[in-house]
Amino acid sequence: MKKPKITVGAVIEEPGSTIKNKTGGWRSFRPVRDKKKCTKCGLCWQFCPDNAINENFDVNYDYCKGCGICANICPFKAIKMVKEEK
């Protein structure tokens, strides 16, 4: 990892570091949506704490940390958490 600048109070002066910092590697389970079961109710999109689900309810695996909240909230059990394999 590149050593960040040691600024006063650890302030990051340039915005956008969250986009640059891809956190998908932290995931051990990936959410997989069954499009046939999905009614596009939008709950997963609302609840994802990482904004990793877009307005078409597709998951952006660059940022999805695999927390499983989307699978848990889906009223139609349309999302399954599948183990990540190396």
């Binding site: 990892m1 109070g9 650890a10 990051i12 002066e13």
Partner: peptide, 15 residues
């Protein structure tokens, strides 16, 4: 700007 971010083991001691 970002205030109060995480300080990983490679910077925490410097801060």
């Amino acid at each position: 700007i970002t205030m109060g971010p995480i300080g990983f083991p490679n910077t925490y001691m410097e801060f």
